[in-house]
Amino acid sequence: MSETKQLEERPCGEAEDGELVPRILRGEESAFEALVVRHQGRVFATVRRYARREDEVQDIVQEIFLKVHQKLSTFRGEAPFHHWLMRLAVRTCYDFLRAHQRNKESLFADLNPGETDWLDRFVAAPEEAGDDEDAARSLVERILEQLSPSSRLVITLLEIEERSVKEIAELTGWSQTAVKVRAFRARREMRKRLGRLVLKKYL
């Protein structure tokens, strides 16, 4: 029996991603299920950066895996499977952000007491306001929700996930120049939003 045949016969849970792909293309459902089980945690974590409501998160993850199945024949195996999967995930999240742009102005009106308190402390003594507090995290979440889809995506990938411009270009399909331009605009947009928040609250 050839080595290839032996590899094909490995249980799905033990097979490498690259071995599962041709099996899925031949119609083996259990191979696709194994791929989903292996990668769904990573996809959930990525999607939760862009969508808050759990029902939205689940719908996006489902859409991503359906796209994975539909486009699997385009996976050429030159890079690890999870790189290809993350490209698909990030682009689907970007589509979601573009389709669900929220009412941006209304969100500033209802800062919760924790966020207000954190901002007050920052205004009084900027260095002493901790950045590991829940209030700071929910405040940044609020700011991110007000950014345009491309700004939110680039801030998340570049500044929060600390990815390189090259990586972002590969994930999004944008050129490296476009990533740099969008990053510049995104930082400017974020500063503008923060400035408006401070202006509304303290002046």
Partner: peptide
């Protein structure tokens, strides 16, 4: 303020459940 908030977001480990 922007740096502090970005750092706060960085400290958050996203839920992969």
């Amino acid at each position: 303020l922007r740096q502090k908030l970005t750092h706060a977001a960085r400290l958050r480990t996203e839920d992969d459940s």
